[in-house]
Design a protein around this nucleic acid. Structure first.
Lengths: 208, 208
DNA sequence: CCTCGGTTGTGAAATTTTTCACAAGTGTTA
DNA sequence: TAACACTTGTGAAAAATTTCACAACCGAGG
């Protein structure tokens, strides 16, 4: 269980988990069928499952439900995680208004913003608090994950507040690049995705 | 120039490009200083630059401006790219309303949606068109990149329409997993980022 | 001019990750 | 039962990537 899986393997298993979620549990999939759905070669999928510790069940394909349960157990996706959002701007509020529905795996339980007016004006089922209460509320509400959707200059302090509250992981949408030795941090940056895409295009000839 | 760089190297260079953009061109950076800013070991940065073909300039640090220009030239980030958005929902319209500002590298030039009403009602500086005109408009307006922000079931057909118009790369925010052998495709999925984060947390003890 | 602390660029080593190849298992059809 | 067309799991080979170590270089301060 605690053998450190290659990052790429983790990422691929998450992808597989996603397609399995939207699939009948009884569906039987071969590694090659599954591979076509997620754009991963069949042998890589088999290897990933192998190193992840998949125990032999049959040599005639995987039952979607069983595979789902295997990955769920492996990464402890079974119990729902409490998530908070820092920064109630356009992006932040979209998380609060349209919570992710992944089988109830994540529950948005709180929002934070430095702007008290915003907190009071905004209508929301999710309770909103001023930013300075962040550490306390995170501790109090036993929040596991944080989404940072604040401007770049506020990102670092937000991270620190979240850490102080004992958060375990951060998904950072601010333009700042965050990292931490104690907790897991993932940076997502839209413009950078576009840039990466551009860099990966083999023979781009620019428009006139 | 055409030597195929490792994907990871490309990704790291994009990250470095990002921090350089927000920095005075005259700033002098050593590989270790730069490394701290982007959370990459110094020797990895040096190696990346080395395989990317960086020519020796000095043995006393990198000038931010020069490094920026080097990466810009390497990936042809110099001329702006035309981008369109398919799906004028919450996410899609956020791209249209708050265009990314990365030094004018990307210009949102068109939006598409199947819902004609939405197109007529929405106020926007960016011209909006019905989805069935997508291929034609993309060709006509010489659009380079597409952002897909449509529901899962419409993702595949949207990709095909974009390809038909001759698009070079797609950033897919729909829950569908897209791939293509001809053009560059990048899938971004929020819930999956949370899931990956969860999977990467070493010793997560769930709340009560 | 010489030394010292700091720097880069890069072959070579070490490590990680992917790919391959195949023994062995399954289920169906006859 | 036998043959066949499929499948998995995995050790070993291959390939890709990261890390290391170090020669060569820079600039400042005597």
């Amino acid at each position: 269980m605690s053998i450190q899986l290659p990052v790429q393997t983790v990422s691929r298993l998450c992808l597989i988990y996603r397609v399995l979620l939207g699939m009948d549990r009884e569906t039987v999939l071969s590694s090659s069928k599954l591979g076509k759905l997620v754009n991963i070669p069949a042998h890589t999928i088999r290897k990933d499952l192998s190193v992840a510790g998949k125990v032999k069940s049959s040599n005639a394909g995987y039952k979607a439900g069983e595979l789902l349960d295997f990955i769920k157990g492996l990464f402890r996706f079974d119990s729902p995680l409490r998530v908070c959002v820092a920064g109630i701007g356009l992006l932040g509020s979209s998380f609060i208004k349209n919570p992710v529905q992944e089988g109830g795996q994540f529950i948005i339980v709180a929002g934070f913003d430095t702007n008290i007016n915003k907190i009071e004006v905004m209508k929301s089922d999710v309770p909103l608090f001023p930013a300075y209460e962040m550490a306390d509320k995170i501790r109090e509400m036993r929040i596991d994950l944080g989404i940072i959707a604040v401007p770049a200059q506020a990102a670092e302090i937000t991270k620190e507040r979240m850490k102080e509250g004992g958060i375990k992981g951060i998904l950072n949408f601010s333009p700042a690049i965050l990292g931490d030795k104690d907790i897991a941090v993932r940076n997502v940056h839209f413009a950078e995705e576009l840039r990466f895409l551009t860099a990966m295009i083999p023979d781009l000839e620019k428009g006139v």
